[in-house]
């Protein structure tokens, strides 16, 4: 999978813009994460609009890409078995969350911490492809999203987060 195979994102699909960016960021590092971010984006975007020309065109390309990834990753348990996939995405999200949380509690505030909190919150969204997410994960998601916005804002204003 070379280059960017997807057409420009239709405005109607803005809600999955960051999930798709996370997929691209993980293409080489962790293709399982990339795959499930795209699967989540596909499901979410289909529910938004699968009829208008530009949206349908985008969805077809995204589906092509998912099918291509699935073929390429046939030997990977986390792709062929969604239970394994769910555990993979959940562990990854919780590891990112812990990394950000430990830094936050140690008083380390930087863009990496913001991004880790934010990416963790996006991956908690992605877990919805496997079904409803637990109360505990919902709390993690809410906290991660709030923290990333708060620290980002503090860094922007030059203030020290409390």
């Amino acid at each position: 999978a070379a280059g960017s195979p997807l057409p420009p994102l239709p405005a109607a699909f803005k809600a999955v813009q960051h999930h798709l960016k996370t997929a691209t960021d993980h293409e080489k590092r962790d293709p399982v994460i990339a795959y499930y971010c795209r699967l989540y984006s596909m499901q979410t975007a289909m529910a938004i609009d699968s009829k208008s020309n530009d949206c349908r065109g985008f969805l077809i390309k995204l589906m092509d890409l998912l099918e291509q990834m699935k073929t390429q990753l046939q030997g990977t348990d986390a792709i062929t078995n969604e239970v394994v996939g769910q555990a993979h995405v959940e562990n990854y999200a919780l590891r990112l969350f812990s990394f950000a949380d430990n830094n936050d509690r140690a008083g380390t505030f930087n863009k990496t911490v913001v991004k880790s909190f934010y990416t963790a919150s996006l991956l908690f969204d992605v877990l919805q492809v496997f079904g409803e997410i637990s109360e505990d994960l919902l709390k993690h998601r809410k906290y991660a999203r709030w923290k990333s916005a708060y620290i980002h804002d503090c860094l922007r204003k030059g203030e020290t987060p409390i």
């Binding site: 009829k51 077809i60 589906m63």
Partner: peptide, 27 residues
């Protein structure tokens, strides 16, 4: 009854994507 054909085309297109999605997750 002449307008029945149009919405069914749109839903067929949606169905095709839904089917591909279901197949993707079954493999």
């Amino acid at each position: 009854t002449s307008t029945i054909g149009t919405p069914s085309t749109a839903s067929e297109q949606q169905d095709e994507l839904s089917q591909r999605l279901a197949q993707l997750r079954q493999m």
